[in-house]
Amino acid sequence: MTESAGLLIRRDEAGVATLTLCDERSRNSLSEAMLQALSAELAAIAADPGVRAVVLAAEGPVFSSGHHLKEMEAHRNDPDGGRAWVEALMARCTAVMTAIVRLPRPVIAAVEGFATAAGCQLVASCDLAVAGADARFCTPGVNLGLFCSTPMVALTRTLAPKHAMEMLLTGEPIDAARAERIGLVNRVTAPGQALLEAGALARRIASRSPEAIAFGKPLFHRQAALPLDEAYAAAGAVMARNFLAADASEGIGALLARREPAWPDPGGARAATSGAGSSGP
């Protein structure tokens, strides 16, 4: 287990890294320090072959309240009114969100309580999301005179345009059941069970071919932005490279031989032991 300045805890077990926001005093806000901690852990995970899936969770009644508004307001006294600092903060936040999207491993949000503004953006940036039945989601910037412009980027890539626009224009919270219906989360659990369900889902994914997932996740995002013909061309090229890779040879061979595949596990020893003594999933 590792802990980043009392803001973020990382536990590894069975190929799953669980990152837990633990700054309850600021309602797990995405402060400058929290973004730095997330950025560092995501970079470490990207370089760790023992990690095959990631769960992003939080302690306390709020998953994340978004940006630290008191921290932002303090910079209104800067010579430029805080513009340069806020631009730098948005760039740091963007780097974290894009790191989640570009990470070759799947990232699953486990949401209990409120996920607001950039906290909702964090959920939308993850590949999958599990929510407790009491979870709530909103982008309330319009209520404060500050449109949720950067959360909008993640929402419009996750939801149908009219659902995203309604959240952004009204600022009203939606419950977990509606979040599931409109595609913000994959499934809803009993209150307090999101982390357990997300951990179980992560372990199932971690048991699949890591090489196939490393081919597939980047392609998923890349092809979605391409015209149809270009998307198929890109997918065909990746399929050919994937077919020649070791995991495809092992997986197809195992199927034809009617046995279970044995995926290479270069980081297995670390993944199996680094979570010892932790309470993560």
Rank of each mutant, 00 (worst) to 15 (best):
G6M: 08
L7Q: 07
I9A: 13
I9M: 12
I9S: 15
E13V: 09
A17I: 00
L19W: 09
L21G: 01
C22D: 04
S26V: 02
S26D: 04
L35K: 04
Q36G: 14
A40S: 03
A46H: 12
G50P: 11
V51C: 09
A53F: 01
V54K: 07
A57G: 05
E59F: 09
E59A: 14
V62W: 01
V62I: 13
V62E: 00
S64E: 09
G66W: 00
H68S: 02
K70T: 00
M72H: 05
E73N: 05
A74I: 01
N77R: 14
D78V: 01
P79E: 07
G81Q: 12
G81Y: 11
W85H: 03
V86W: 11
A88R: 09
R92Q: 04
T94H: 12
I100L: 15
V101N: 05
L103M: 14
A115T: 02
T116F: 03
T116A: 04
T116Q: 00
A118Y: 03
A124Q: 02
D127V: 02
A129M: 13
A133K: 04
R136N: 02
P140W: 11
S149G: 07
P151Y: 00
M152T: 06
M152E: 14
V153M: 13
A160W: 05
M165K: 08
M165E: 10
M165Q: 11
E166W: 11
M167L: 15
E172Y: 13
P173E: 05
P173M: 06
D175L: 14
A177V: 14
A177D: 08
I182W: 00
V185R: 00
V188Q: 04
V188A: 13
T189D: 09
A190I: 04
L196V: 14
E197W: 11
E197G: 04
L201Q: 06
L201R: 10
L201H: 03
I205G: 12
S209R: 06
P210I: 05
A212N: 02
G216Y: 12
R222G: 10
R222A: 15
R222V: 15
A224W: 06
A225G: 03
L226F: 12
L226W: 07
P227E: 01
A234C: 05
A234Q: 02
A237V: 06
A245V: 09
A246R: 15
D247V: 08
S249V: 15
A254V: 10
R259Q: 14
P261Q: 06
P261C: 06
A262S: 05
G268S: 05
A269M: 10
A276R: 15
A276P: 09
G277Y: 04
G280L: 11
